[in-house]
Design a protein around this nucleic acid. Structure first.
Lengths: 296, 296
DNA sequence: CGGGTGGTTGATACTTATCAATGGCTGTGG
DNA sequence: CCACAGCCATTGATAAGTATCAACCACCCG
């Protein structure tokens, strides 16, 4: 009665280089511009030192300024606090360390109840659950500025695996410090709860997509939502975005098979909705893509 | 390319009576007993007055004692606060009103940004999203003691429809009062964040189920998880539980069709895993049911 | 050069949806 | 009290959507 159809779930440990063409051609109506709140300053990813530990709180807090944290502007919030002079030295020293890891490396293990809260600074990562038989569901793609999960801010939680898609730089904050800091600054808690709600809305949508939408819709929606999130970070180049995802990632995010994803993406491209090449994706016909996605 | 297959989504306004047989025959190993933390005191659903408004905070807080709130023991927390004498009269008057509505009535509309936070006191409700074309995804079943959503405690949020499955009694707390009360009592915040994490874990599991599990697994898991949640509330009678859900509910919760749900449930019963009759469900072969569910 | 990964494509199988017909049950109204 | 109208569940036949399998090619990367 119960037929478990295991999918391959081999873990790979190889490194991967991304060489993404980002031509600067002008755009008519970029997805970014069609959204309401848009910040389009160029991204200045000042490289953080790899595998270094910086015990000086001021230093590591300010280094967050290179991180375009939009979804939860925690770093920014902390930084403003300090810049706004109502930061008493020693009052809230948030220990944090920066790390840079190659693609495909694991950031958090599902059984690890870490005392640290990681935030992605550069690169793409993925948060997922994997069943013993190898079936995997990606819950969210983590982009620069994303907390791994709002929920893990206050209490250690896991069950999710977080792994790097591209090379990733992230920063681990010590939860205890972060927590006491948060409780001392209610306006940050306020911001946190907004992010929390966004997160919930997104997971509601995920359930709706997985439960009730067709393969085409799911894939089109995934692409549009990534484009929107990247646009918020100023990471859209007109209609073009970096697209480091393997089709396996898309499949695991949409509950489909890599083979089927390939077919649908092929159709989309043949239908002139988009173009994917050399790890970058360009939306050609936004209107039709939105229609395919049953968007809004 | 995009084929929208609308499912019927007629709203019904009829009332429905539940007459559930709950025989008190002895049990060998109830699902309740197989769990670690179990409270099995009989439920004393002292009927709350219908459609009444009680402005006296003490009164309405204490009336929560009839509500077996386990998931977030907010009422209990508040009540203990008061009983524990560290409640200063007037300090935290939480306005709340009790309501009783017939089955199938809507409790929250998706576009309503209410200033109230509802908690289910009696009966079953359902929280869902519906697409314009009628496709619907149930996100969670709300049992007695459940907050509609942890997220809506701090900020108004919605997008979700909440409707009664059986006749439902719920209580609406004024968010502002609840919020200030929460912030004055950090141990409640602590408890809240635990509930929050549970909620997130559950929504992760939902995504995994919808994206990566077969129909049989999804249905078996739904039943087991309901049994577990009911057991926590002392609402399991051995292996038997009230099961007011229509197959449409099961279908919308599992991302399947009512027809297919009927077939799977039929198989389950013919295979001797369970029995459903007169709105109550009995687990016959727990081991096999767990196996079918790929549980744990 | 060779091996592993990733993407494409076609043939086929399986799972689930759709359609349709039936009967039971419930609540409703004459 | 009975008849009727809706809903609900069941079942079988058929269709659609995805998965599975397999083969192939195109890359990188070492």
């Amino acid at each position: 009665m119960v037929s478990l159809t295991a999918q391959t779930a081999g873990k790979r440990q190889n490194r991967e280089e991304l060489e993404i063409a980002r031509p600067d051609f002008p755009t008519e109506h970029s997805i970014a511009e069609s959204r309401s709140v848009v910040s389009r300053q160029p991204i200045d990813h000042t490289g953080l030192p790899s595998h270094s530990v910086e015990p000086d709180p001021t230093q590591c807090l300010f280094s967050c300024s290179t991180c375009p944290a939009y979804e939860l502007n925690l770093c920014l919030g902390v930084r403003q606090k300090i810049a706004g002079t109502n930061w008493l030295p020693g009052e809230s020293s948030i220990t944090s360390t920066a790390h840079t890891i190659p693609a495909r490396r694991t950031i958090c293990h599902p059984k690890e109840w870490s005392e640290f809260v990681p935030i992605i600074c550069q690169g793409w990562a993925v948060s997922s659950i994997t069943l013993p038989d190898g079936r995997r569901q990606i819950l969210t793609f983590l982009l620069p500025g994303d907390l791994v999960s709002t929920a893990c801010l206050l209490e250690p939680m896991s069950g999710r695996t977080v792994e790097a898609v591209t090379e990733v730089t992230y920063r681990k904050f010590k939860r205890r410090d972060l927590k006491t800091f948060l409780f001392k600054h209610p306006e940050l808690l306020e911001k946190l709860s907004k992010t929390w709600i966004e997160e919930r809305t997104q997971s509601d949508q995920l359930a709706l997509d997985l439960g009730r939408r067709t393969a085409d819709e799911r894939i089109a929606r995934l692409i549009l939502s990534l484009a929107e999130r990247l646009a918020k970070r100023g990471m859209m180049n007109g209609y073009t975005m970096e697209f480091p995802l393997r089709q396996r990632h898309v499949a695991d995010a949409t509950g489909l098979t890599p083979v089927h994803v390939s077919k649908v993406l092929g159709e989309f491209q043949r239908a002139g909705l988009m173009e994917i090449s050399s790890r970058s994706l360009t939306v050609i016909n936004e209107t039709e893509l939105r229609r395919a996605a049953d968007w809004r």
